[in-house]
Simulated scan of single mutants.
Amino acid sequence: MRPTLTEDVITLRSPLLARMSDDEFFEFCQQHPELRIERTAEREIMIMSPTGSRSGKRNARLNGQLYIWFHANPALGEVFDSNTGFTLPDGSVLSPDASWVSATKWNALTTAQQDKFAPVCPEFVVELRSATDSLRTLQAKMLDWLRNGAQLAWLLDPDTETTYLYRPGQPEPEIVQGFDNTLSGEAVLPGFRLELRELR
């Protein structure tokens, strides 16, 4: 096993980890609830420490706004927080900071699938950059979300007050400067508006 450390992420690689089944990976994560763990399509395991308090505050406000929209539109689908892992079509297991899955996709899963890292890609995902996150790494992750089926993906950078909007079929993200703006959920989340100023 050859661990590497970049920013606040430890990456583990080994033939043994590459052979780990989805159920074994899920159990590995349950044994370490204090950590945030993801798996790449190459079967590398990424171990991240809990977020700092300021990032946690921002994430709570982000998810709070999304939940208010969900509460008014419960029949459309389900919302998820940053502790939720999804098994994507490329075999990776990722945990966005906030996400939404349509009722059609969610209800097609069995209860057993819903109880683990559901084999589904959310239609909507948000990644919230913390002070120690690599922007380049997060931008690559947004493209992974799109390749796996996300229809709208937001990368929010509160420190520079920059938003990157990713959509399928667009070679580059739309960039919005300033957190005095309001983001629209567009056709994916009809009626959802995110007040960016709350994430300062």
Rank of each mutant, 00 (worst) to 15 (best):
G77E: 05
E78T: 13
E78G: 05
E78N: 11
V79R: 08
F80P: 07
D81P: 03
N83C: 12
T84E: 11
G85A: 02
L88I: 00
P89T: 12
P89S: 11
P89Q: 12
D90M: 09
G91I: 06
G91K: 05
S92N: 11
V93E: 01
V93M: 10
V93F: 02
V93Q: 10
L94A: 00
P96V: 07
P96H: 07
D97C: 07
D97R: 10
D97Q: 08
A98G: 15
A98Y: 11
A98K: 00
S99D: 01
W100P: 00
W100L: 01
V101T: 11
V101W: 03
V101F: 04
V101S: 04
V101N: 02
S102G: 06
S102K: 01
A103K: 13
T104K: 15
T104I: 11
T104V: 14
K105Y: 00
W106H: 08
W106C: 08
N107G: 01
A108E: 12
A108W: 02
L109W: 04
L109M: 07
L109R: 01
L109S: 07
T110V: 07
T110W: 10
T110L: 09
T111C: 06
A112M: 07
A112I: 06
A112P: 02
Q113K: 03
Q113C: 03
Q113Y: 07
D115W: 06
K116H: 08
K116Q: 08
F117S: 11
F117K: 13
A118D: 00
P119Y: 07
V120S: 01
C121G: 04
C121D: 06
C121A: 14
E123V: 13
F124V: 06
V125G: 02
V125F: 09
V126A: 03
V126N: 05
E127F: 03
L128S: 10
R129W: 02
R129A: 10
S130Y: 11
S130I: 06
T132D: 14
T132K: 14
D133S: 08
S134G: 10
S134Q: 08
L135F: 08
L135I: 11
T137M: 11
T137C: 06
T137A: 15
L138W: 05
Q139I: 04
Q139E: 14
Q139K: 14
A140F: 09
K141R: 07
M142S: 01
L143H: 13
L143V: 03
D144S: 12
D144T: 15
W145V: 03
L146S: 05
N148V: 01
A150G: 12
A150M: 02
A153F: 05
A153P: 02
D157N: 14
P158Y: 14
T160C: 05
T163I: 15
Y164M: 13
R167M: 04
